[in-house]
Design a protein around this nucleic acid. Structure first.
Length: 358
RNA sequence: GCCCCCAUCGUCUAUCGGUUAGGACAACAGGUUCUCAACCUGUUAAGAGGGGUUCGACUCCCCUUGGGGGUGCCA
């Protein structure tokens, strides 16, 4: 079975850390299995989708090295496909029209759940079952003619030939609907894997209120892509054998879904910072220096530093810098005069017999 | 309310019936040191509770408790 997975973000703003983690896991799964990693931009929400947000997504993926294998599919171009699928469901009796009243006006198209108990196998959580009475019919096309997420998502996954759907835990319940949709559409049901959520110290979904929550923010704060990638990989997954800091190749070859945990994982910025330090320490000096330069660009005392001294300082402090932004505290090395008591200094020199090689 | 999922040090995790329950981050102590930091060494620290199954349970089953998710003409 050839592996085809996808990352399907909505271009409505910044790229959330939880979303990019899902992208990373999909990417790793594809690379580990020699499959394809596809990108689908779910831009059907005309109100909130913007071209800038698409660029933000592309930029975040490029920064982290998440290369995709085929041209991105823009969901808005699939509108006809979605409606065609709805028509098919109507025709074969899996859907019906109804005016539900309430917020919308007119008839919407509703998918009829099979009315039998259902189940699917989750690669991470195991077998999941649901009784018929716990599943309700649901709207697939709104009364204004626009397809709902469930329909669009499933139809697009079918047209992109997705074999494994690896996504956040918050979609577990949707999966029963999606499986029913696949079957009603006469398509092969893909394999599913639901990733544990990334939560904050309170156990709630990690959000921007908990500090940095977007890829762009981590980049600005001075974290390097490899460190963030490695760290995110360890949230909910472990290669075993006490391995943590790994090269990309090592991660790819060790990555399997059966080693993904199913409980939520708390985001610990301190551990990320420590790991970032390990990555910065092994960078070539000039690359490190370049990163420092970027972060010092806006700092007033660092506007015209002596190049030779700057490189010297970089060489000296590289291994002790967990974050680029820490270079902002290097001011004393360049401009502050060293304060000392001349008399006490001389006295110490004599007393200790200290020899200074100056 | 109803449905589903989850549960090892403060945190991320290893363990897939038999271990002194291991590693990492953090914390603490000491060392090193031109402040800070980094670094080195060491210490503290965990199987939520109760029943089973078994010669033997962190590990398998059940209940309780706690946490999370879902329950839209949102995605």
């Amino acid at each position: 079975m050839s592996v085809r997975v996808r990352f399907a973000p909505s271009p409505t703003g910044q790229v959330h850390i939880g979303n990019i983690r899902a992208a990373i896991f999909n990417w790793l799964f594809a690379r580990h299995n020699g499959g394809k990693f596809l990108l689908r931009i779910e831009d059907t929400d005309r109100e909130r989708s913007t071209p800038e947000a698409v660029q933000t997504i592309l930029g975040a993926m490029e920064w982290l090295g998440l290369s995709y294998d085929e041209a991105p599919l823009y969901q808005s171009t699939q509108h006809g496909q979605h409606l065609q699928a709805a028509e098919l469901l109507l025709k074969n009796g899996h859907a019906y029209k109804e005016d539900k009243g309430g917020t919308g006006q007119g008839e919407c198209i509703i998918f009829k759940m099979p009315g039998t108990d259902m189940g699917f196998h989750d690669e991470i959580k195991g077998d999941l079952l649901k009784k018929a009475e716990d599943m309700k019919d649901f709207v697939i096309v709104r009364s204004d003619g626009s397809p709902v997420f469930h329909l669009a998502n499933v139809v697009d996954d079918i047209t992109q030939g997705i074999s494994h759907i690896i996504r956040g835990d918050d979609h577990v319940e949707n999966t029963f609907r999606h499986v029913a949709l696949y079957k009603a559409l006469g398509a092969a049901v893909p394999r599913y894997a639901h990733l544990p959520m990334i939560v904050n110290a309170q156990g709630k979904p990690y959000s921007k209120r908990d500090g940095a929550a977007y890829v762009g923010q981590f980049r600005e704060m001075g974290y390097c892509a490899d460190a963030l990638f490695n760290f995110l990989t360890l949230l909910g997954w472990s290669p075993g054998e006490d391995r943590e800091k790994m090269t990309l190749d090592e991660i790819i070859s060790a990555f399997t879904l059966d080693r993904v945990k199913s409980g939520p994982a708390q985001f610990d910025l301190r551990k990320l910072t420590h790991m970032n330090g390990l990555y910065l320490a092994e960078l070539p000096v000039d690359v490190f220096a370049e990163g420092v330069r970027r972060h010092l660009a806006k700092v007033d005392w660092a506007q015209s530093l002596d190049e030779a001294l700057f490189m010297k300082v970089c060489r000296l402090l590289q291994s002790r810098t967990p974050l680029y932004t820490q270079s902002e505290t290097w001011k004393y090395l360049f401009v502050d005069p060293i304060e000392y008591d001349e008399k006490a200094f001389q006295k110490t020199l004599k007393k200790e017999g200290v020899m200074l090689a100056l």
